[in-house]
Computed example of a mutant assay.
Amino acid sequence: MKHIKLSDSAIEKKLENLQDWDFYDDALHTDFEFDNFKDCMSAMNRIAFECEALNHHPEWTNVYNTLDITLTTHDADGVTELDFKLAEAINKIVEVEE
């Protein structure tokens, strides 16, 4: 399935309903801080299942209790609906963890 890159204005509008995410460098970005490493890894594992279900994978890094996530659709050279779908799922998972 071919994913269509969203316009900057469409992305900014969709971001109004997506808490804790920013748009820059043709990608969506967020970071989460957890109580400890174990809670962070638990969230990452739950997010991984969602990524597999959507067949869409983040660029992410974890340092102790902090998780940095970048979402972009490489075959579209930018942000697509798929990135927003995954971002919304990530927010739900992290809300449950906290």
Rank of each mutant, 00 (worst) to 15 (best):
Q19D: 15
L18I: 04
D25N: 13
I11F: 01
L28S: 00
A27P: 06
E50Y: 06
N17Q: 06
Q19A: 13
I47A: 01
Q19I: 13
K38A: 08
F37V: 02
I47P: 00
I11G: 00
M44A: 07
E12I: 15
M41T: 12
D25Q: 11
F23L: 06
E33I: 06
D22L: 14
Y24F: 11
L15T: 06
N17H: 06
N45A: 14
K13I: 10
N17D: 09
D39H: 02
E33F: 07
K38E: 04
H29M: 11
C51S: 04
I11L: 01
L15R: 08
T30D: 11
L18W: 06
S42I: 14
F37S: 03
R46S: 13
M44C: 08
K14V: 02
F49C: 13
E16Q: 09
D31V: 09
F34G: 04
D20Y: 14
E16L: 08
C51A: 03
N36H: 07
L18T: 05
E50D: 12
E50H: 13
K38C: 04
E52L: 01
W21P: 00
Y24H: 13
F32P: 01
D26S: 12
K14L: 02
F23Q: 02
N45V: 10
H29E: 15
M44T: 03
C40A: 08
N45Y: 11
